[in-house]
């Protein structure tokens, strides 16, 4: 099993959600996060003074899936979250040792 983590632009969340749901992905976890990458931050001006805002608001999407679904989900995510401009974010995939469904106690692929 794998954990797919994607950092995306907040306004792309609805597109990402619809694309994944249409493709049969049954669950995801979303967190509002802040950070910076190559895009860097931006500046805001208050009373003529510029402030550097380093941490830009982003959304973190987490999906646990069986190994066989990884490529397809990453492709869907990439397509749905891409605006083509700097700051579109990143996706990374990590190994998951075990998954347990709390209500039933099922584990492994059955629990996804």
């Amino acid at each position: 099993m794998k954990l797919i983590t994607a950092i995306i632009k907040p306004f792309k969340l609805d597109e990402v959600k619809s694309a994944l749901r249409d493709a049969g992905v049954e669950g995801m976890t979303v967190t509002e996060v802040r950070g910076f990458g190559r895009q860097g931050g931006h500046t805001e001006t208050y009373r003529g003074t510029e402030y550097q805002i380093d941490f830009v608001p982003k959304v973190k999407v987490e999906i646990v899936t069986e190994e066989s679904g990884v490529d397809r989900i990453v492709e869907l995510l990439t397509d749905a979250a891409r605006s083509g401009k700097i700051g579109d974010g990143k996706i990374w995939v990590t190994a998951v040792e075990s998954v347990i469904r709390i209500r039933t106690g099922e584990s492994g692929a059955d629990a996804i």
């Binding site: 805001e44 208050y46 003074t49 510029e50 402030y51 550097q52 805002i53």
Partner: peptide, 9 residues
């Protein structure tokens, strides 16, 4: 930290 660190509203 003032004025190097800015604190916007």
């Amino acid at each position: 930290g003032w004025p190097h660190e800015g604190h916007p509203p």
